[in-house]
Simulated scan of single mutants.
Amino acid sequence: MDQGYVGVAQLLFSAATQRDGRFDPDWLDGDLNAFTDLTTPAALAAVIDRHFATSAQTLKNEEAAAAAQAPATGTPALDPALRRFSYNPLRGRPVVTGYDTRYLIPVPAAVVAKASPLGLYFTGLEGLGEAFANDLGELFEQYVGRQLHLLPDASVHPEIVYTEQRDEKKSIDWIVVFDDLVLLVEVKSVRPTMQLRLGAKDFATELTAKLKKAFGQIDKTAALIAAGKEEFAHIPADRPVLGMVVTMEPYHMINAPEFRSVLPAGVVSTTIAAIGEVEDAVTVTDTSLSTILVAGAQAGAVTPGGGWSLRTALGDHPLEMNPILDQAWEATPFGQPEAPTQP
């Protein structure tokens, strides 16, 4: 990734909100080092052009291509009522050239999204291909583990390798042991497709293809723990077990009965949670997360075919600042503000 990528995104967002959606690297003059490690306006422009910018004509061409493709696929993505669910090319290239200013930024929030994990996914995929997506999935799994290790009253165990009929297999990704609960966590870096967001007729096929396996993995690990499998001897089998599938991007309303009814019921009561929910959950201050999880699972169980939502279970519980997120912010240029220069 180019030097200063995140700093450039922060700079573009700040400029767009202060300069009516416009930006020119030459505005910075000698202040460039305050925002990014890039040393000249030309170097800054090179990163913008490589990763953030596209021409107005290219955007028009993408729109025309989508319109031509929709009838062939049966996708109603161009219906005015459905456009907000379809892919916006500004997510991939939020800066536009070809107008009366050097760079136009129509949607500043799209620049921030470009520097998010999802934005980095598409940037890396564009430059490095599927290998980047695989590596990001591994890193995301480890990141979830870092978050779980913030829990003050739990021990966190990584996936366990075990043998079954002479074959070597692996458990779910993380096992979190509380005094009164065992939480089985499976990490999935999958994200909802446009068809799923649109609610197409085959949404159930899309959904189960992405998440079905996780429920089976959680149930399998729970069964191995209950059976006293040798490799799982350090995991207690004397307390309730819950499951959690952690995704990189939110699947909105995924735990509602309408969606959960098309997923496996599973033996273990399991919630599907986006990473943002987990980043909040590990900072609860007034009680153990295990208490919240058990209450959430019990509340969800009263709805036939429904799941239980971690966000809803957190309710009004007070949260602390997440130290991992604080550390990430402080590593960015805007996390280290410089003192104003004396006149």
Rank of each mutant, 00 (worst) to 15 (best):
A297W: 04
P71Q: 03
G216I: 10
P80D: 14
Q57E: 01
A227D: 10
I225H: 01
A273R: 04
W329A: 12
I160W: 08
S269K: 06
D100R: 13
P41V: 08
I272M: 06
L325A: 10
A16H: 14
G276D: 12
R239K: 15
L151H: 05
E258M: 00
G300A: 03
A274P: 06
A281R: 08
F85Y: 14
L128G: 07
A131F: 00
R197C: 06
G335Y: 03
M248N: 02
Q342Y: 08
Y99I: 11
L151D: 05
L125F: 11
R311Q: 15
S55K: 10
Q147C: 10
A200F: 13
T283W: 03
A56R: 08
D316P: 02
K229P: 02
A226V: 08
R166I: 09
P333M: 14
L78F: 13
V176S: 14
G228P: 10
L118D: 05
L104W: 03
F178S: 15
V95Y: 09
A154M: 07
R239W: 06
L44Q: 06
H234S: 00
D100E: 13
T247K: 09
K210A: 08
H317V: 00
T287Y: 04
L150P: 03
A110T: 14
V47N: 12
E168Q: 02
G315P: 01
T247G: 09
D173P: 01
E186C: 06
T303S: 14
I160P: 09
G127R: 15
Q336M: 10
A72V: 13
M321K: 02
D179M: 04
D280P: 01
D100H: 14
L38F: 12
G21T: 11
A113P: 03
T17A: 11
Q142P: 04
M1R: 14
A274R: 01
L325Q: 14
L44N: 07
V161F: 11
F132G: 02
A133C: 00
V245D: 14
Q298W: 03
P250W: 02
L325C: 06
T73I: 05
R102K: 11
V246C: 02
A154Y: 07
V294N: 00
S269L: 12
I235R: 07
F178W: 15
T312C: 11
F334S: 15
D286K: 04
L12E: 13
A67L: 06
I218D: 12
N322I: 11
P340N: 03
E258S: 05
A200Q: 13
P192S: 01
G119L: 05
P106I: 06
E258L: 04
V96P: 11
G30I: 00
S116R: 07
D280Y: 11
V282N: 05
P236Y: 13
R50W: 06
E231W: 14
Q165N: 14
L310F: 14
R93C: 01
T36K: 08
S189F: 07
Q165W: 01
M194Y: 01
G4D: 11
D135M: 09
N88S: 07
P304N: 04
A77Q: 05
